[in-house]
Nucleic acid binder design. Sequence first.
DNA 1: GTCTATATGAAGATAGAC
DNA 2: GTCTATCTTCATATAGAC
Lengths: 192, 192
Amino acid sequence: MKTQGPGGTRTKILDVARELFATHGYAGTSISDIVGRLGTTKGSLYYHFPSKDAILDAIVAEPADALTAIIEAAEATPPPPAAQTLGALIDLQGRYPAAYLAFYAGEGPLLQKYSKRHNLEDRTERIIAALARPDPPTTGRLVRARAAVGAVKDGAVTALRLHGGVIPPGIRDEILSAALGALGDPKPFPLP
Amino acid sequence: MKTQGPGGTRTKILDVARELFATHGYAGTSISDIVGRLGTTKGSLYYHFPSKDAILDAIVAEPADALTAIIEAAEATPPPPAAQTLGALIDLQGRYPAAYLAFYAGEGPLLQKYSKRHNLEDRTERIIAALARPDPPTTGRLVRARAAVGAVKDGAVTALRLHGGVIPPGIRDEILSAALGALGDPKPFPLP
DNA sequence: GTCTATATGAAGATAGAC
DNA sequence: GTCTATCTTCATATAGAC
């Protein structure tokens, strides 16, 4: 696997594909759309990637692995504090802005497509179940865990939009506090 | 506009299209997919709808109007309690399950497609801005408002999944409480 | 590495018999 | 109202010159 500098054609293809997939969806984005935006041609694109699916794979692989690490940490026994898991999710979104807003939301054609090839259907369930511990997973607790993840996702999206692709530390705290509020933790973190 | 009984072909088309659009996205669902699932043919489908877009319109129109009503109520002066707006959003999701999970989330190809025709780009912004009142809309407040809406959406999705398409009253309260927790309201509602 | 040109299939949509 | 058959366009992907 050859790494490539940030100015390389391959990198540029991934950049515009990431953006277009995020806004129009995978199926809604054509190869022509991508090369049209780049100003190159299909022939060139297919020199760098063997298929459209391969582009998706390249885009998704890295954040997907990072998410797996977060999930596995969240599943440790005893469970880590919810603030740690939710904070890691916020940071994940900050590190991979724009593309994977719906990535661990369990919905969205992008996830569908990727999930079929990588057997990730239960990803959402795993992180929700981990967050719903240590209590027995009542419906209410599961719903709140999911709500907390939803709060992280949408809060981070808004923060990224308002601040040009970064999440300032103060806003990160705000998102985390919102997520913990949704989760229903009585004491989010000690106040100074 | 002719109304049609629940057993009618038109209704059946809308039912499977709603489901397929929700899982695979608008662009990811073909007319062949729809008629294949129905066991009918394209000719029949095109007797009932002039285009694929028209199917989307028919699916989206009703919940979209309901959402507009919620937004306008939320924008009233003085602002209604947040619990009222968020509760209305939960009820909306309960009334139109499965299809519009990403509808007011501001993301997703389905919204993109519909939004372009109906000028709804600012829908998300409006409801967030309304929820962020009456405080001046600081970034933190906006982020929390968005997080609250995200909590409603994902919480309701989970509830619908766990309970076969309905949101029981007790769970509705749980979602509302989670959303208010995300919003940061100190006193969600008076305890009995 | 990038281009032009093209193969091949599937998409949305229509015509017209029944 | 539903069918079969078909048109047209656009999709992914390839071949081969430069």
